[in-house]
């Protein structure tokens, strides 16, 4: 991930900031310019809930190079308590005990290092609540 791209996504990666359509109330994460429900163009910034349930998940056993040391690990779609679904790694979990419907919460974690000398990218993961 390049530094400028990472920097642009900081409000979402660090603080789960989403765009809520002021016309129809639909929440977009990440924020959009045009509402997919009503084509509205006015949004207010809202912070997503930091707790939710596992909607579905998969176990990654053959990982991309920067995550190879973490394999096997779980990646899931988590439905946060405000109804928004996000995809995130599910960390600190016993993979045999992980199940759909399990309660999780957001934790701030290191996502990846840009090699030995590049920037360190932080963001959200889910952990058992």
């Amino acid at each position: 991930m390049s530094s400028p791209r990472y920097w642009r996504e900081i409000p979402q990666r660090y603080r789960l900031e989403a765009g809520k359509c002021t016309d129809c109330g639909n929440i977009h994460f990440p924020p959009r310019l045009v509402c997919s429900a009503c084509s509205g163009r006015q949004f207010e910034t809202v912070k997503l809930s930091d707790e939710g349930t596992v909607f579905t998940y998969t176990i990654i056993r053959v990982a991309p190079s920067q995550f190879v040391d973490q394999a096997p690990y779980a990646v899931g779609i988590v439905e946060l308590d405000d109804g928004v679904r996000i995809s995130a790694q599910i960390a600190d979990v016993d993979l045999d005990a992980l199940e759909i419907g399990q309660r999780v919460r957001i934790e701030f974690r290191l996502i990846q290092n840009e090699g030995e000398a590049g920037i360190i990218c932080y963001g959200y993961k889910c952990v058992p609540a």
Partner: peptide
Amino acid sequence: PTPDQDTITMSVEAAK
């Protein structure tokens, strides 16, 4: 700490 935890990540959680 796990490899995805460091001084920054723990500081953020404690500060929250």
